[in-house]
């Protein structure tokens, strides 16, 4: 029984780690219908910025955190302006944007490589070593923080998108790009804003994830990126609650496969679950089917 509880705890902890990133991914994906491969690299850059600011510039935690998030947000806007806007304005097929984001991902990764090297660096964490115990199972404070932060993100983003004007503009752009423009929405600004928020969230998740594992290196983006991408799609693109749900499902699939079947095929389980769900519900669990109009 204790073994089972331990797995449940691990799954929820892992799920919330994925959820942090998946929420941001889902939002960008929803508004732009763009598979953004550079999101994972932005995640990694955000995490590294915090490392650089706290270790090299010796800033205290909170200002470093805020600064990293802001800088990463602006980085996202810059990326969009330089690498994606020309493609969008010239009606290039979605493929071209995809490849462009791959190129951006390579650029960001290699810039960090040249600056920081490929070694794994230790990361400052909050509440090191402190945890609470549920019987024999221990839950670290950091894990609780992550669950709390994902919940906060989910709630605040959902409110923002539903209630604020900017959020409404984003939803309009997501629904119908051209119509939104016709209604006087500056689509360019909306997209920049989306990228800003998306990248800022990526930075937040990157920082917390690295705090959780107490290390950072240039590959964390890609190793987390794939699963969070899967989680986003599983839950339904554009649906923030779906992103969290998808993250939990994937985490549970992984952890329980690892614990009860075989540790080395845990990734396999995650993707198999993804495929099965999409077979049954081609628009993700909570996604709405897009009406194809002539």
């Amino acid at each position: 029984m204790q073994f089972f509880t331990q797995q449940v705890v691990s799954a929820i902890a892992l799920g919330s780690v994925y959820a942090l990133t998946a929420i941001g991914y889902s939002m960008v994906f929803g508004v732009l219908e763009l598979i953004n491969f550079s999101h994972a690299s932005v995640f990694m850059v955000g995490a590294f910025l915090y490392y650089i600011l706290t270790n090299i510039a010796a800033l205290p935690g909170l200002p470093a955190f805020l600064l990293s998030v802001l800088i990463t947000g602006f980085l996202g806007v810059a990326v969009e302006k330089i690498t994606l806007r020309p493609l969008r304005l010239n009606n290039q097929p979605k493929f071209a944007s995809l490849i462009s984001t791959i190129g951006t991902s390579i650029i960001l990764q290699n810039i960090m490589f040249l600056l920081m090297g490929s070694e794994t660096l230790p990361y400052q964490t909050l509440f090191p070593g402190q945890s609470i115990s549920l019987g024999e199972t221990r839950i670290s404070y950091m894990q609780i923080v992550i669950v709390a932060v994902s919940t906060m993100l989910l709630v605040s983003l959902s409110l923002f998108i539903k209630k604020s004007r900017a959020g409404m503009a984003m939803r309009a752009t997501a629904q119908n790009y051209d119509a939104a423009e016709l209604m006087g929405i500056s689509v360019d600004s909306v997209i920049s804003l989306t990228f800003f928020i998306g990248s800022a969230i990526a930075a937040i998740s990157g920082i917390f994830v690295c705090m959780n594992y107490q290390s950072v290196d240039i590959t964390i983006g890609t190793s987390f990126g794939l699963k969070t991408f899967a989680a986003t799609v599983l839950g339904g693109i554009g649906n923030l609650g779906g992103a969290v749900l998808g993250s939990l499902i994937i985490a549970f699939a992984e952890v329980f496969t690892a614990a009860y079947i075989n540790t080395s095929i845990r990734d396999l389980a995650a993707f198999v679950v993804l495929v099965i769900v999409l077979l049954v519900r081609p628009n993700g669990l909570l996604g709405k089917p897009v009406q194809k109009k002539v």
Partner: peptide
């Protein structure tokens, strides 16, 4: 769209 992409990736 995105669903196809991630399934093939998967």
């Amino acid at each position: 769209g995105g669903y196809l992409a991630i399934v093939t990736l998967g």
